[in-house]
């Protein structure tokens, strides 16, 4: 399998603000590559550059050897894009939307009709294809949004947070469809801030934060960076101050990191069992009541925490 996407030292600046900061990675044909990072990390800007929508300030990117800046039309014919927002016409039906976007990709006549039928079956909306999009649920709209990205049978599909704002059932369906698309041979660049999605789907993951690619590799390669560390999540009451608790716990022996967020504090430690008792005792001294404790094996969340000192949801 060859390289389908090549990204080298990509930079995007908006005046003095750096949205993408010299990132480099490759994607091999047939893999699912996830860009994992919190909101505002630079994921959508990266996708926008790679899909030729905006020009990079510096750097180079190419799809199957075609430069995104110098040969955008060739790149556009090879890629499909599923944007984060529902980019559809609400007052048109799914069928009308797919027909319109199909024609925008150069499909006409019988080829268009056949492809739209295939996509409608793929997104399981054949029976409701003639209803206006505005009458659909959030999950159904997301499926049509994905369907539009598939119309031109892309070699490389960019999916920008396709599960944002939908119910768990629809989310499950979308994750399954991503796997199915990949099994059919499609290469996928998937962006998300949900660690579980990246873990479930990806062959390789790039962790992005503040525009920088801070880690890159398979899941096992990344978790190895954290070593044998455990993550201990302490849940506190609504009236408690997690910042105050985190500060107090940083002095406990065996606690390497203590990161507060909404109603919880995440601890990184070589042994969760050994630090649990002194941690609870210290919380009592501080007058903070711990409601519950989760112990997590090393995962991508822990990797992000380890690399940035912050939880993914921050």
């Amino acid at each position: 399998m060859g390289t389908i996407l090549e990204v080298r030292d990509l930079v995007k600046k908006y005046n003095s603000k750096i949205a993408v900061d010299r990132i480099s990675f490759d994607i091999q044909e047939g893999e699912i590559f996830s860009l994992l990072g919190p909101n505002g990390a630079g994921k959508t800007t990266t996708i926008s550059i790679l899909s030729t929508l905006i020009a990079p300030t510096e750097g180079y990117a190419a799809v199957l050897g075609y430069s995104v800046t110098k040969q955008p039309m060739e790149v556009k014919r090879l890629i499909g894009v599923v944007p984060q927002e529902i980019a559809l016409y609400d007052d048109m039906s799914a069928l009308e939307n797919l027909n319109f976007w199909g024609e925008m990709y150069g499909l006409t006549g019988k080829a268009l009709k056949n492809r739209v039928s295939e996509v409608l079956e793929q997104i399981e909306l054949t029976d409701r294809a003639k209803e206006r999009v505005k009458t659909y649920s959030g999950g159904m709209k997301r499926r049509v949004n994905i369907g539009v990205g598939l119309l031109n049978k892309p070699r490389l599909l960019f999916m920008d947070e396709p599960t944002v704002g939908i119910d768990p059932q629809s989310r499950r369906a979308i994750l399954d469809s991503v796997k199915k698309l990949n099994k059919s041979g499609m290469t996928i660049l998937y962006t998300t801030h949900y660690m579980e999605e990246a873990q479930e789907l990806s062959d390789r993951v790039g962790v992005i934060d503040h525009g920088k690619l801070i880690a890159l590799g398979t899941q096992s390669e990344l978790t190895a960076q954290v070593g044998e560390m455990d993550t201990l999540i302490l849940h506190v009451g609504e009236n408690e101050d997690p910042e105050h608790l985190a500060q107090g716990l940083r002095t406990v022996q065996g606690v390497l990191q203590a990161n507060p967020s909404d109603h919880e504090v995440a601890l990184v430690t070589p042994s969760a069992e050994e630090v649990l008792a002194p941690v609870v005792s210290r919380a009592n001294e501080l007058g903070i009541k711990i409601h519950s404790v989760d112990i997590r094996e090393p995962n991508l969340e822990a990797v992000f925490l380890h690399l940035t000192g912050r939880a993914l949801r921050d």
Partner: peptide, 9 residues
Amino acid sequence: TGTLARMLI
């Protein structure tokens, strides 16, 4: 709504 961006892509 993003449809203009979609057209440009």
